[in-house]
C-alpha cells in the first residue's frame, strides 16, 4: 500500500509520544504546521483502511495478570479445527500457524497463574494436544515502534 508523505510521517513519528493533551491532534498539527482537521482526518482514514490497527497504549506484558507464549504440535489435518477451539478461548490474544513441528503458537493471558494453567488444561482436554508453556523470562527490548 502506498502512503503519502504526510501519512508516512504520521505512522513513523507518532508510534510513541502521542500527546497526552486535551486535544492531541491539535498538538500534532502544530508540530507539523498543518491543521488539526487534516491530522485527524488522515489518521481516521489510515484507521479505516486498516493501515493503523488502533491508536492507543501498548501495555507491557505481564503488567496485569499472567501470560505466556504457548506452542503446540497439532496434526496437519486437525489444524483448523484445533485453532478454532483455541481462538474461542477469551484469554487467547494471538494465534498463529507457523512452519515447524510445533505448528500452532498463541499467547494466553489470565488474571493469575492458576487461571492460566486452568485455561491450558481446558485447551488440552478440548483438543487432545499438549500445550507447551514458554513464558517470558526476560525482555531485551522495549517495543518502541517500527519504522516503515
Amino acid at each position: 500500500m502506498q502512503l503519502t508523505a504526510l501519512e508516512k510521517k504520521l505512522v513513523n513519528q507518532w508510534q510513541k509520544g502521542f500527546p497526552l493533551a486535551r486535544r492531541p491532534y491539535a498538538q500534532i498539527a502544530e508540530s507539523l504546521q498543518i491543521s488539526e482537521d487534516e491530522v485527524f482526518t488522515t489518521i481516521k482514514d489510515l484507521t479505516d483502511r486498516g493501515v493503523l490497527s488502533r491508536i492507543g497504549a501498548v501495555v507491557r506484558p505481564n503488567t496485569a495478570g499472567a501470560s505466556s507464549l504457548v506452542a503446540m504440535q497439532v496434526p496437519d489435518k486437525r489444524l483448523d479445527e484445533v485453532a478454532q477451539i483455541i481462538s474461542e478461548e477469551p484469554g487467547v490474544n494471538h494465534n498463529y500457524q507457523r512452519e515447524n513441528k510445533l505448528n500452532l503458537w498463541f499467547v494466553v493471558t489470565a488474571s493469575d497463574t492458576r487461571q492460566l494453567d486452568q485455561t491450558l488444561a481446558r485447551i488440552k482436554d478440548n483438543t487432545g494436544c499438549t500445550p507447551i508453556k514458554l513464558p517470558l523470562k526476560k525482555a531485551f527490548h522495549i517495543d518502541l515502534g517500527f519504522s516503515i
Binding site: M1, L3, L10, V11, W14, Q15, K16, G17, F18, L20, A21, R22, I43, L46, R49, G50, V51, L52, S53, R54, I55, G56, A57, V58, V59, R60, T63, A64, I142, D143, L144, G145, F146, I148
Partner: peptide, 28 residues
C-alpha cells in the same frame, strides 16, 4: 485519565502511546 496514563507511562506499565500500524497492510 491523562494523569494516570502519564504515570503508567513513567512506571513502564505502558510502553508507549501512539499509532499502532498493521505491518501486513504496509507490506511487511
Amino acid at each position: 485519565v491523562i494523569e494516570r496514563l502519564e504515570a503508567m507511562l513513567q512506571s513502564g506499565a505502558i510502553r508507549r502511546i501512539g499509532v499502532v500500524p498493521n505491518h501486513y497492510k504496509l507490506g511487511f
